[in-house]
Simulated assay, not measured.
Amino acid sequence: MSVLPDDVERFVRAIGPEPDETLREMDAYAEREGFPHVGPEVGAFLRFVARLADAERIFEFGSGYGYSAYWFAEVLPEDGEVVLTEVDEDELDLAREYMAAGGYDDLARYELGDAMATVDRYDGPFDVVLIDHQKYRYADAFDAIREKVPVGGVIVADNAIAAGPIEFEKLLAIAEGETPEEVNEHTRGIADYLDRVRTDPAFETIVLPLGEGIAVTYRVD
């Protein structure tokens, strides 16, 4: 569920770029199956970030059925690359179908299995990284990809404000320097990730209230 009020979300969607037919099919799939995808507002932002970064290579920690990868692929050069990682074979097969339908199959590398194991097999640089897997592993994902992101590169983490198990009041308390009791691992994972990227002098981070909240981390040094 988006953290934006419904009317504001509709406004952002109306002003943003129009999804193509395949993306509309992917949105319909998410609604029909109850799949927690990032949605067109965040998808358009991801594409915008990749465009600003002049991205040639992109890595995703968690790709589902390829929704975010599809948005990314639209701005990659012909020799670009987006690495999709997914533990669910059926979802990855569906991602392949959608990417092929959009004409982006040649840009995609499909990796079945744990993203944390996959990233070790890839050398950098990656101009844009999306972190959207288990929340308690976000900080580990940052550590794994940190040295593979060049100056000017961007890391985007989804669910920085909300998701089913995230306790926002406790997340806010932690951000403001308090120590709430009984914080679940998902909330703690997001809090640890935000602390990690905010305190790393090589990066600058902001959080934007799009979708369920996205943390945008830019490499400055």
Rank of each mutant, 00 (worst) to 15 (best):
S2G: 12
L4K: 02
E9I: 03
E9S: 13
R10M: 10
F11K: 04
V12F: 14
R13A: 13
I15F: 06
G16R: 01
E18Q: 15
D20Y: 01
L23A: 05
L23Y: 06
E25R: 15
E25I: 04
M26F: 01
Y29C: 01
E31D: 13
E31F: 03
E33P: 00
G34H: 08
H37W: 05
P40R: 05
V42I: 12
G43P: 07
L46Q: 03
R47N: 07
R51A: 13
L52A: 14
R57I: 01
F59Y: 13
F61W: 04
G62W: 03
G62D: 09
Y65D: 03
G66N: 05
G66V: 00
Y67C: 00
V75S: 04
E78Q: 12
D79A: 13
G80C: 06
E81N: 01
L84R: 02
D88K: 09
E89I: 04
E91M: 11
L92Y: 02
A95V: 03
E97C: 04
G102E: 03
G103F: 06
G103S: 06
Y104K: 00
D105G: 06
D106F: 00
A108I: 03
R109T: 15
A117T: 06
T118C: 09
F126D: 08
D127R: 08
D127I: 07
V128K: 00
V128C: 10
V128Q: 07
L130S: 05
I131C: 14
H133N: 14
Q134I: 04
Q134L: 14
K135I: 09
D140W: 04
D140T: 14
A141H: 06
D143R: 13
V149Y: 06
G152A: 10
D158G: 08
A160W: 07
I161E: 00
G164P: 11
F168Y: 15
E169I: 05
K170G: 05
I174N: 08
A175N: 05
A175E: 11
T179D: 15
E181T: 14
E182Y: 03
E185F: 11
T187Y: 12
G189V: 12
D192A: 11
L194E: 10
R196G: 06
R196A: 15
R198D: 03
D200I: 02
D200N: 09
A202K: 08
V207T: 15
L210E: 01
L210V: 11
G211K: 03
I214H: 11
I214T: 07
A215D: 11
V216P: 11
V216I: 13
T217G: 10
T217Q: 07
Y218P: 00
